[in-house]
Design a binder for these strands. Structure first.
Length: 753
DNA sequence: GCAAGGTC
């Protein structure tokens, strides 16, 4: 019997393809180390093997393993080896290596073409065909398999050129910068075609903020009254104080006369269906990082709760039965919202700008049988609400605009009121700011209640937050829907940036500065655009992969030469930034700049003025911010220490201050009467330990989340101090000895009540 | 230990 071997890019697509081609009779076969789907059609045996992305991975030969012993110019010209990445898939494929026909049915894009060709060298390829489909619908799949085309080796080559160029540039420059700055192993400095220009964006924004010179401007506000107070503002720009004061004196205490009044209704459009980028951006507003949101979305997808989370598409395909999904959701906690959608005469979905054909937008496909918790619940709910919002009505708002004459000067008052909530009732994450202005008549005279001349300052541009960063990356074509969140994560884990809004660290700044001083190219987004052009040339056959990669190698030799010529300057720049530290803002004592310098095991907070008393070493493993408040004991500024998974700790900037000592003592040690002090373990977990350590080794574990409060009570059973845990509104009293009778008693008592 | 791109 003829054997057809079908290669799919991923499990989900593979199942779908087999299901359609087999007219629902396909069977999954699983044995140790192998997985495939089998079915018969037209008296032929078909075996479909689903991969999970790339099977091979580019790398350098192992002789280049040692960074310090490898010559970078030799590394540039080294041959590239391809290592197996997915052994299980290869093992499965080998069982069918003599198949009569091989049909590559990976995603129809550049990387898909490459993934498909990666498996060929493990097979005795006789007859190789390509099935091209751009949606997993019955028609597309059936058409693609009855009209197979040839594999486009040029397209696959273009993707391989990308892979090799990224590896060569990334590895060579990563090694160069790490070695030049003496930062090796876990502290290494990474360079890449996508990550470095992304960091460049953050750097550029930081420079704009720093060089920003605020300008004063003025506003004149008059509060009128008709049934209710409402505000009107002078209708021209006021940059000059004298002019502003003159006009203010002319209008002050004068009545207004309505010159015109207009009212118009307008739509606030419902949002478009979710693609990956928009989904990750919205998740970040819920406090969930893009990397974590993606991780959760993948799991929800694997559980069959949502559709495939990697997509650029923002238009629902016709084949999706939107109504049946809403009906499913009707039997969930979103029944109210689902009812709103179903109450419409017709369900018409919104559409976004991108109509791609590979995958649908992200939408819920079923309702969880067991209630989700934590961030999983938040993510699922976000996707459900977004989905329902795209199927519901636009909101309707009314804008009223009044032009008011006050002693010959024009004032304007603008009101905005929601008339119909529409999708806001479903998508509760967004709200609309309303402002009330009463209905007015032409020539109506208004009495002013309050007159105010306001002095304002223009503000610097904002730092990126992860949401606007994702958007900026997308618009500059940096990374893909599947990799952007990963790249942002890398910038954090390499210590180039911190926080959200995203702030560049001294390391990130010194690194980009040293690039810009030498050869800014590698920190600019154009690298990607140029690579894209070369890839197109390979795909169209005007250049070969080797031409492009070798040309790229020649360029890298020259770039590397520039950098190697300035090795000592680069080392100095990066280390100078690290030694100066990060600015924490102004010193509250003398207004000079306050610096936070990070060392291996502690931080130093130091004022720019050598004579200032603020110069403290803080032994802590969290992130440090300056707090607005002052220490109640010594009135020095307070700092906030943020540790992952813990509530922030606020303490006095002076480690020796009594406030800190008092604050951390939770009672006396039952063993030797020493103080039980709040401490942090090497792994950043908090616990109570005796102050007489190492003489006394008494410790108690503590819950990591929630605010801890001391009491003056002692446990009646074991003598440990009783502590209160505050979690939101809940207060919970417990003994730090976990298995103590107190805790059992406490719980029983609680249940009784 | 290096990149970016697939996907789990």
């Amino acid at each position: 019997m003829t054997l057809n071997l079908i290669i799919a890019e991923k499990m989900d697509a593979g199942r779908r393809i087999a299901y359609i081609l087999s007219k629902k009779t396909s069977k999954q076969k699983r044995s140790k180390g192998s997985f495939y789907i089998e079915f018969e059609s037209n008296n032929e045996r078909n075996v479909l093997v689903p991969l999970s992305g790339h099977v091979l991975e580019a790398d350098f030969p192992s002789d280049f393993k040692d960074w310090l012993k490898s010559d970078l110019n030799l590394l540039i010209d080294s041959r590239i080896v391809y290592n197996v990445k997915n052994q299980r898939a290869i093992n499965t494929l080998k069982n069918f290596k003599d198949a009569d026909n091989i049909i590559i049915a990976t995603d129809y894009d550049r990387e898909g073409e490459l993934i498909g060709t990666e498996v060929l060298k493990f097979l005795n390829a006789k007859n190789i065909k390509r099935a091209k489909f751009s949606a997993l619908t019955e028609k597309e799949i059936n058409d693609a398999f009855s009209n197979t085309i040839n594999v486009d080796y040029n397209l696959a080559d273009s993707a391989q050129a990308r892979e090799e160029i990224d590896l060569i540039w990334g590895a060579v420059l990563t090694r160069f910068f790490s070695i030049a700055s003496n930062r090796l192993w876990k502290d290494f400095i990474s360079v890449g075609r996508v990550q470095t220009p992304t960091l460049g964006l953050i750097y550029k924004r930081e420079m704009e903020i720093r060089s920003f010179v605020p300008e004063k401007y003025y506003k004149i506000k008059i509060t009128f009254n008709k049934n209710r107070d409402f505000d009107a503002y002078y209708n021209n720009e006021l940059k000059d104080r004298k002019t502003a004061e003159k006009i203010f004196s002319e209008v002050k205490n004068m009545p207004g006369r309505v010159k015109s009044f207009d009212k118009e209704e307008y739509y606030i459009y419902r949002p478009a269906p979710f693609n990956t980028n928009e989904f990750l951006r919205e998740a970040s507003y819920l406090g969930i990082s893009p990397a974590r949101a993606m991780n959760i979305a993948e799991k929800l997808y694997m559980q069959g709760l949502i559709s495939y989370p990697r997509t650029d598409n923002t238009v629902y395909n016709k084949s999706i039965n939107l109504k049946s999904i809403v009906e499913k959701l009707k039997k969930s906690e979103f029944s109210m919202e689902a009812d709103l959608v179903l109450s419409q005469e017709k369900i018409l979905p919104s559409r976004g700008k991108t109509e791609a054909t590979d995958h649908p937008p992200i939408y819920p496909v079923s309702v969880p049988s067991k209630e989700l918790t934590g961030d999983y619940k938040k993510i699922y709910e976000l996707i459900v609400r977004r989905f329902l919002a795209t199927l519901y009505k636009n909101a309707v708002a009314v804008r009223s605009t009044a032009l008011i004459d006050v002693n010959g000067h024009d004032f304007i008052s603008e009101g905005n009121i929601i008339k119909e909530n529409g999708w806001y009732d479903i998508y509760k994450y967004k709200s609309y700011r309303e402002y009330f202005v009463p209905d007015l008549e032409k020539n109506e005279v208004l009495n002013g209640r309050d007159y105010e001349l306001q002095e304002k300052e223009t503000e610097p541009p904002r730092r990126y937050d992860v949401s606007s960063l994702l958007k900026a990356m997308e618009s500059l074509n940096l990374g893909t829907k599947s990799t952007r969140h990963d790249i942002i994560d890398k910038l954090y884990s390499r210590n180039f940036v911190t926080g959200n809004p995203v702030k560049i660290t001294p390391l990130g700044e010194g690194f980009i500065k040293s690039i810009i001083d030498t050869n800014p190219r590698i920190s600019e987004p154009e690298m990607t655009a140029e690579l894209e052009m070369d890839m197109d040339k390979i795909a169209s056959g005007t250049k070969t992969k080797d031409d492009v990669v070798n040309e790229s190698r020649r360029m890298l030799h020259s770039v590397l030469n520039d950098f190697q010529g300035r090795t000592s300057e680069i080392n100095k720049t990066i280390n100078d930034y690290l030694n100066t530290g990060e600015s924490l803002g102004r010193c509250p004592l003398d207004g000079n700049e306050l610096f936070l310098i990070k060392y291996r095991d502690h931080y130093k907070i130091k004022c720019g003025d050598e004579n200032c008393r603020i110069d403290f070493n803080i032994y802590s493993n969290g992130r440090i911010q300056l707090n607005d408040s002052k220490c109640p004991v010594c009135s020095l500024p307070m700092i906030k220490i943020i540790r992952k998974g813990q509530s922030p700790e606020v303490k006095c900037i002076d480690p020796a201050c009594d406030y800190n000592k008092e604050k951390d003592i939770y009672g006396t040690c039952p063993a030797d009467g020493g103080n039980l002090v709040l401490r942090q373990s090497r792994y950043g977990k908090r616990f109570l330990g005796c102050s007489n350590y190492p003489k006394c080794t008494v410790t108690y574990p503590l819950p990591q989340k929630g605010i801890l409060k001391k009491t003056d009570k002692k446990c009646q059973y074991c003598g440990a101090p009783i502590i209160v845990l505050i979690n939101g509104r809940r207060h919970f009293e417990f003994c730090p000895k976990i298995d103590c009778e107190f805790n059992r008693g406490g719980k029983i008592e609680k249940n009784k009540v």
